[in-house]
Write a protein that binds this DNA or RNA. Structure first.
Lengths: 157, 157
DNA sequence: GTGGGTGCAAACTATTTGCACACAG
DNA sequence: CTGTGTGCAAATAGTTTGCACCCAC
């Protein structure tokens, strides 16, 4: 099932005078169906199953394009590679991460679609006013220990 | 003035069986006196003024060590290089950044030393409970427009 | 048909590592 | 003296780019 089209991506492409190609659709499909936080290489390997001829460079170029269009977001979880996440259709939803520093597990925390639901709303507002800075995007990660790794740590002591 | 010693770094080194060398002191001095958010290369160039023979690899090794010791913190501002900030003596102080996506200006926001002063305290607590995840470090950046660049953008329209 | 899109290989950049030598303890 | 720390050069890893060819429009 072509998720990419379902999310109106194809329309977005046309608007911008961009071509709708197999590779672009495949990258979007992988990101929207597999979900999670895939690295460029992981996406490349997945797409390769559908389109064996694809090149890694194309994946990077596609991901950059999709990031500019706001269809995916690029995250840095400090493991030396960027990770990409499908965010089309989630406008107004804030997206925070909890990352376990031992096992690397990533927990997603998403706010409700309603802007007022953002628990950081007031904080952002006060920052904006204090520094006369208009916040467009937040990049918020919490590093620590997940339940499982915390348990393992305690046993060791 | 050897700031590095002033912050008790030398003591920390001894405790850990690490040697107190000219290079390490110089890196700490630069970071603590210059302040800001320096990249490895910027630090390297500064240290070179004091110790012309230093190598970039040593700067990286020193920064990694200092990060482990909690003397500096490593940040990612999405410009393709890591940035380092002196944080010794600031335990319990949270440190957030506002980054202008046009001019790259970085505004620091630091909480008071008092843990309760952290505006994100309640949010972190609710996250911890909800996901049974113990948060050790936050990595919080807000991207947007600084006052000046916002003004310039508006004029253009 | 034509210009944007793609694969490939080479280039690039930040960072890491191997090794012989240097110097703090 | 001994082993940690260092400089240098080479290696690595993720990402980007140049170029000739290809295909969506």
């Amino acid at each position: 099932m072509p998720f990419g089209q379902g999310w109106g991506c194809r329309g977005r492409f046309k608007e911008c005078g961009l071509k709708w190609t197999q590779t672009r659709q495949a990258v979007i499909d992988i990101l929207s169906s597999k979900g999670g936080h895939l690295s460029a290489e992981e996406i490349f390997l997945e797409v390769k199953k559908l389109l064996p001829g694809i090149g890694l460079a194309t994946v990077y170029r596609t991901l950059e394009l999709l990031t500019e269009l706001g269809i995916v977001r690029k995250f840095d979880f400090k493991d030396g590679r960027s990770r990409y996440e499908f965010v089309a259709g989630k406008e107004g939803i804030e997206h925070y991460h909890l990352i376990c520093r031992i096992c690397g597990k990533i927990i997603d925390y998403e706010t409700e679609a309603d802007k007022d639901a953002d628990p950081l709303k007031d904080f952002k507002k006060s920052l904006s006013e204090k520094f006369k800075f208009s916040i467009e995007r937040s990049d918020i990660q919490f590093f620590g220990l997940c339940e499982r790794c915390k348990g393992l740590m305690e046993k060791k002591d």
